[in-house]
């Protein structure tokens, strides 16, 4: 099943298949290791629900839901 990162539940894992968007934000996501093929896991959400924290390439990364919306992952059913 495919879904975007912002709809993930805590503890959910997936493999990135696509990074949408454009310009600096997308570039930054690539630079931080958010590229197709990488495994990502949603670790937690901030107390107010946004931003979110994921584990990717062995480290913790935080991003806003707005940016997470651009990242599509494949999740095991």
């Amino acid at each position: 099943m495919e879904k975007t990162l912002d709809t993930f539940k805590i503890g959910e894992k997936g493999v990135i298949i696509k990074v949408n968007g454009e310009g600096v934000t997308r570039r930054r996501l690539f630079d931080m290791g958010v590229t197709p093929g990488a495994n990502a896991k949603l670790v937690k959400k901030a107390p107010l629900g946004d931003p979110i924290e994921i584990t990717i390439r062995n480290y913790e990364l935080t991003l806003r839901k707005n940016e997470a919306k651009q990242v599509t992952l494949k999740v095991e059913d």
Binding site: V24, R28, M32, P51, E53, E60, T62, L63, E67
Partner: peptide
């Protein structure tokens, strides 16, 4: 500005 940041250990 986008908020894409490492959370260091």
């Amino acid at each position: 500005p986008p908020f894409i940041m490492e959370l260091p250990a």
